[in-house]
Design a binder for these strands. Sequence first.
DNA 1: GATTGGCCTTGATAGCTGTCAAAAGTAGCA
DNA 2: TGCTACTTTTGACAGCTATCAAGGCCAATC
Lengths: 244, 244
Amino acid sequence: MAVTSFEASLRQRCSNCSLREICLPLGLDAEELGKLDDLVKRRRRVFAGQHLFRAGDPLQSLAAVRTGFFKIYEVSAGGHEQITAFPMEGELMGLDAISTDAHRGNAVALEDSEVCEIPFTRLETLLSDLPRLQHQFHKLLSGAIASDHGLMMVLGTMTAELKVAAFLLNLSDRLEARGQPRAIIRLPMSREEIGNYLGLKLETVSRMFSRLRDDGLIATEGRKTEILEHKALRDLCLQGPLRA
Amino acid sequence: MAVTSFEASLRQRCSNCSLREICLPLGLDAEELGKLDDLVKRRRRVFAGQHLFRAGDPLQSLAAVRTGFFKIYEVSAGGHEQITAFPMEGELMGLDAISTDAHRGNAVALEDSEVCEIPFTRLETLLSDLPRLQHQFHKLLSGAIASDHGLMMVLGTMTAELKVAAFLLNLSDRLEARGQPRAIIRLPMSREEIGNYLGLKLETVSRMFSRLRDDGLIATEGRKTEILEHKALRDLCLQGPLRA
DNA sequence: GATTGGCCTTGATAGCTGTCAAAAGTAGCA
DNA sequence: TGCTACTTTTGACAGCTATCAAGGCCAATC
């Protein structure tokens, strides 16, 4: 029992987290990691379907996904919902709240998940003391912008088939960056949620999955998807709506 | 002559810049402003059509638009160009470069413009000393994410007519935030560039301008556009693709 | 094991936007 | 002023995606 709780406490620290090469701790030395550990004390389980935060909530903490999968959606003034991201392990949520001190998005767990809460005001204080942590935080903010631009490119230039292909490749790349097999993708979101994210209707998403399957590029079994022809799928995205 | 150059040097400082309530200096006291002034020494003219930076350039400086208008476009692996922003006065460019230490976008002046160059490494050093500047910088990064999400909502949920209406309202709001008349919009970009930004073809953009004009919501005279019915235009965006 | 409800797939049709084409408008320049 | 090149507008038509509809699959429940 004592051993178990010791191991649990180890797992509960940034310094031993398997995601430290992806998340906030990247590039820190032991002393710096210790200070970050002091800050990120609160871990929290979020069950499937449960909200972690809602639009309008004051920004208390940023949250890093430790295990599981989330969706972030925003609601326009006209009442339309748009999913803006599907954060997975090692990704931060709530970065867009800093500008207004209140969350703009709603975060829902797509499966039973666990997050590390990072009190934002205390984080900013710590950043001033730890230049390397500051730089890594800026890289994560900047990376979020870059990744949003990637989605804008998908939304603005691609046909339905390419959008779905790009979506699968994006997930595949992110899995690979976490040391997981890049070919096998377990989708925690529905066709409707994929469609919302990609600017498509759920029927169109379904049709495109079928088309990619019929073309032999992927195999599907419900929400389990396997990429059979990785290179062909990437070439499809590259050629794009534009041929040479 | 002496007076002129004195006035010029005043205008060349963050502490006296008319954009200090929008840009990086927001919230700083006199001493802090002085340190920022020391950092942001280089102003640079960029003539219409000229590039300020290109994708792949190492990140040396962020740039704040002082006067004029830019477009930022990214080129996908497949060679497709996508405009991701039209920065105007007081807006920062190059934030997405921090994550990779190299620019991802290409910045082109749409008209003769002037920018303030902010050496990034020195900025990060200064941020550690000036918590308020650090917080404002984070707000601007966060605001860039929020604004990208706004565009994703437009791209993902709106029809062509609503996209163009939302585009005009966005420009109108940003002009108003700078104390300029919100109804009169001088577009420095072509129909093709608007279309690229909104995920539409130039002909469709032109048709939607004509439709909004025929409906009495706007008046057009080439690239000069006037919003005649501001509320009606906003209502149009709100009702969106969704009734009720 | 049958039933129920949610999600996914597939088909037929309609509507919106893209494509192709031509003419009109605008700006720069000799 | 007149020329040229570019941008914008407008029209006709095709193609892609949304819509409407029905049926199948799966898991949870009784």
